[in-house]
Structures are given as structure tokens and as C-alpha cells.
Amino acid sequence: MKRVRSWTLAGGLVLFGLVVLVALVSLVWLPYDPSDMTGGRLTSPGWPHLLGTDKLGRDLLTQVMVGARIALGAGAGAVAIGGVLGVLAGVATGFAGRWLDDALSALLDVLIAFPTLLLAMLVVAARSASLGSAVLAIGLGMVAVVARLTRVLVKRVLAQEYITAARTSGTGWLRIVSGHVLPNIWPTLVVNLALQFGVAVLAEASLSYLGLGAPPPNASWGRMLQEAQATVYTTPTGVIAPGVLLLVLVLGVNLIADGLRDALDPTRRKRA
């Protein structure tokens, strides 16, 4: 049992590590300049362009490598925004009294029902289309989801007898939050944030595909998919390359989340 679980985590780390490695390499070395359009248009994989070129004659491998940077950055940025704001808001609502809690949860429900795409269009309208706008929109959309989860987790822990027991021995609220509540909710939160990372990567790709994300010539995987879709039958690599990398990254992150869930829970770890 334990073997299988750690295998999940290891597999996820390998896939995720692969994409991180590609992104790191892209920082110091690229096969071609990303804006170099001298490669001939829509060539097939071969030499000197390992993955071929796109419709403007740019090297696909170079584009895909730069795209890894953007995808990881978008995921990390959105999770940072959504995670920090979401957990803070969630802990606050978790501790809030009756009517304040009702009001805040109603607000969270409305925010969750609000489509990320619409939010993104509003942010873009306010700020202009850029990677930053996309990340901001995705992160803000995530706040409500994370906050609602955190609120439920906090409430559940606060209802436990060990909180009452800690209070009967005179433990103050600050110590209850730092000593009992956070340690008991963070495994679930970390797993959820890992999943949210995957969701954010896909959301950034979707927004870029729709032209609401990184504007050209930034090589977001989503925009590469959009640009290559017209020529998918003649040169499929233009779609396959970013598509496969997107799959590898999101699958890797999801496997990590799955593996973490078991690794972070001492009761499961010991029984496994």
C-alpha cells in the first residue's frame, strides 16, 4: 500500500520536475531566439528544427520551452494570490460569529458562481490583456474556492472535542489557531492548492487561447494551440507539442496532490 502511494508522489514529481527543468533550461539556453522567423514556415520535425516550425517560421521547441516558463509562472502566481487571500478569508469566516458567517458565506457563494472567464474579461478590460491580468483573474477566482474550503475545515476542527479539551486547560485563541487549527487543516489545504495549481495552468491556457492572456509574441501554450489549430492536419506537431506538455504538467501536479494527501496524514501513513 505504502509503496503504491509513494510511487504516485514520485511519478508526479518526475513529470512536474521535467517541466520545471525545461523552464529552467529556457532561462539560460534556447535553441533559437524566440522571435527568430528564419526557419521556413510550417516545417515538419527534423534537423535543425527538432519539433519543426510554426506558421511564422519560428522554432517550435524554443516556443514550447518559453511556454513552460509562462505556464509555471501563471500557476504559481495564481496559487499565491488565491492561497494567501483565500486562507486568510477562510480562517476569518471560520471564526466569525453567527450572522457575520452567514453573510460572508453568501458572498463566497456568489463569488464562486461568478464565471472565471467573465472575471478575466473584466480584469482585462480594466488593465489590458497581459499575463499579469490573466494570473490576477485566475487568482481572484481561486480566492473564493480556497476560502470556502478553509472555512469548512476550520469549522470542523473547532467543533472537535480536543479544541474544547485544549480550552479547558486554558489555551488561548492564538495558540489554538497556530497549534491546533492550522496543523490540522494544512494537509488538506496543501493538497487542494496543488490541485488548484493544475486548474490555474489550464485556465491560463484557456484564457490565452481566447486572446485574454499573454499577448503575442509571448509563447503561451494556450495561444500556440490557437495559432496552430488551422494547420492541425498538415503539421500536427504545432498542436501536439504544447498539448502534451500541458498534459504532463497538469497530470504531474495532480499526482503530486494525490501522493501528498497520503504522505501528509500521519494517521494514514502509520496504518498503511
Partner: peptide, 24 residues
């Protein structure tokens, strides 16, 4: 009350599995 709890009075609960923090 914080000052009193644990010193003036304290409680031992019925079910020690739930009265102890599982992750501590």
C-alpha cells in the same frame, strides 16, 4: 476565564481519542 482554566478547574473527557489532537 483563561486564567482560571487549567488552574482553578480542568476537565478529563469521556473519549480520549477525540479529546487529544490527532496530529500532535
Amino acid at each position: 476565564l483563561l486564567e482560571l482554566r487549567g488552574r482553578a478547574a480542568t476537565v478529563v473527557f469521556q473519549e480520549p481519542l477525540t479529546a487529544l489532537d490527532p496530529l500532535m
